[in-house]
Design a protein around this nucleic acid. Structure first.
Lengths: 353, 353
DNA sequence: TTGTACGCGTTATCAC
DNA sequence: GTGATAACGCGTACAA
């Protein structure tokens, strides 16, 4: 693209040595094979000519593209950009570029996307869009492609992953709720085909029992979005069960739930406490500010890049799959309040049916 | 990366023809040179062998990488993901992949980043991080690199751009404010080195005069972020000027301004109306919901990709620079309300000094 | 219509 | 230590 890029040959001519000598002098790995003086002259000439190695030629020769693919469901979902940013920051100065692609969570599109990525010969993959059972990922991993899943994991433990401590987050949230007097707690759970949905729900059941709570009615959202959160909240309210708090499997479900609550003329947290998970941007500014679990999104991406580098640099045998779990933090805000001691759980007539 | 990719040679052997025949048969552009029957056999064999062209070899040969770079200040700023998504969606089925990089708005980092991108030989650039005067961009464009700026533009009209109608947005907002009785309007303007900051402020001055408004005190934010919005709002309130509304150059400034307002015990919109620009995700859920200007972020990215394709496909002469301006929309929410007719503008003593 | 030959820029493997 | 040479996979003038 640039006017007329100079090549190894140009530098060689300028210095009066052979191309391969230049190649060796410029490659840190083989630099020691060259006389200091001549290496210095080569360095100067390459600077003077503004020499830049040709990536395509390098790739053709070495079979490495210095490129990794990052696969997310949708970059406009604000949970993913920090992860991507973490990956890019960790990889940039190692000379890797990052190809970001969106799957929209659709299985067949994921296959196409992974295909395109693999055709481009990426050196490795960071995947945020996996389901618990994911044939496409398993196949690629089986072919020896370095892969790390982020945020979510697959059930197959041979696939490396960097995730947040979902179970601990739910436990902390339940402890918070019990500490302010809630004993009847409903839940809006996530997609059980995703590790996050599954683990958070399992933790809800487990720790609710351990804390002696009445784990109230549960609704399962099909997708982690506001619409499903609203729908589930509507169903919970219509169900007539008794509960003083609703634990949502993520922030977007919680935001939808808050909307549904308001639409029925109920108030949070006075009538019902609502909790989220992820601590998305802006959830501290909504009304009411959301009590949630903060996860280290950027750090997840950054560490995933580290794990991936390890796998990409491994000559021969792949290192044993690492499964990194990052700690989370409880963030208490306005959407939770002490349970109204004597007040029965809301039992409202649905407005829509 | 995949086990053992098959090449043109493999397909050629399988069919019993020469490599170049296979190359021609598989390239839509030269497909017509080949007998239908043999082309069909080649197509079958290539499918059977799961042949995938080697990107590196293709690039080495053609000097095209089928890759574009997208340069943004920071992908975690929620204004950018939809733009990126638009670019990717428009480019994916044309066979292009997208390299996303972050500059953090820092000039020297931008230079490094653009350098890395150009070294990788991207076929073109979508740049969201330009300033009005941008030497690095000018230089690349001068070298013949296809470039389109998005959201912002450079003053040099020879650089193609796809932006939103900043002036119209400000005019609509001022008309809205006057229509509900505001006559004294202050402003928190953006960085005047950015086209958005400059154009929005110019439009404020221009249309305020045209509408016969008292364009109140103005503060200039250094960056389009919440902190600067809060600081500027503080200064406006401390300044003791009279105004009933504050027009902010974007949503993040407005959000910061709302925070500062609340910190001083004032209420929006009862004491002061506040407006934003961009209609970022979630600003409809904050307290109060933000009156703002909706821009077509996804469309901006999508169209930018179109303009870029046009430039990348132009053999020889670059087509004249296109400057696309997309319409915007006024979104009225809770942060604006009729001006309290008789009530003087707030004059509060600062709490911090 | 198909085959031949060459080169894109690099690195690895030989000699010297 | 350095030079020569081949090879990576592909596209394309040119020849047949």
């Amino acid at each position: 693209m640039a006017r007329k890029r100079s090549t190894l040959k140009d530098v060689a001519q300028a210095v009066g040595v052979h191309v391969s000598t230049v190649s060796r002098a410029l490659n840190p790995h083989t630099r020691h094979l060259i006389t200091d003086e001549i290496a210095e002259r080569i360095a100067q000439a390459s600077r003077a000519l503004d020499y830049r190695p040709n990536t395509a030629a390098y790739s053709l020769r070495t079979n490495r593209t210095k490129t990794v693919g990052v696969v997310v469901p949708d970059i406009t979902n604000s949970i993913f950009p920090p992860i991507i940013r973490g990956v890019e920051d960790a990889l940039l100065d190692k000379g890797y570029a990052t190809l970001v692609v969106n799957t929209d969570g659709r299985r067949e599109r994921e296959a196409v996307i992974l295909d395109a990525l693999s055709a481009r010969g990426v050196d490795g993959l960071v995947v945020a869009s996996v389901q618990r059972e994911d044939a496409a990922i398993g196949e690629l991993a089986g072919q020896g492609v370095p892969i790390v899943t982020v945020n979510r994991s697959v059930d197959d433990p041979s696939i490396a992953s960097v995730v947040s401590d979902d179970a601990a987050g739910i436990r902390m949230m339940l402890e918070h709720l019990t500490s302010i007097g809630h004993t009847r707690i409903a839940a809006i759970a996530g997609d059980q085909n995703l590790s996050t949905g599954k683990k958070r729900h399992q933790a809800f059941v487990l720790h609710a029992a351990a804390l002696g709570l009445l784990a109230g009615p549960v609704r399962f959202a099909g997708a982690f979005n506001e619409d499903d959160g609203a729908r589930c909240m509507g169903e919970l309210l219509d169900g007539g069960g008794r509960f003083t708090a609703v634990l949502c499997a993520n922030d977007r479900l919680a935001i939808g739930a808050l909307g549904a609550l308001r639409a029925r003329g109920m108030r949070c947290p006075q009538d019902l406490s609502v909790t989220g998970f992820n601590d998305m941007p802006m959830v501290d500014r909504i009304d009411p500010p959301l009590t949630t679990i903060r996860i280290q999104q950027y750090q997840v991406g950054f560490m995933a890049a580290g794990v991936l580098l390890e796998r990409m640099n491994a000559r021969g045998e792949a290192p044993p799959a690492r499964s990194v779990v990052l700690p989370v933090e409880l963030i208490v805000r306005g959407s939770t309040a002490p349970a109204a001691a004597s007040k029965p759980a809301p039992r409202v007539r649905s407005l829509t049916r």
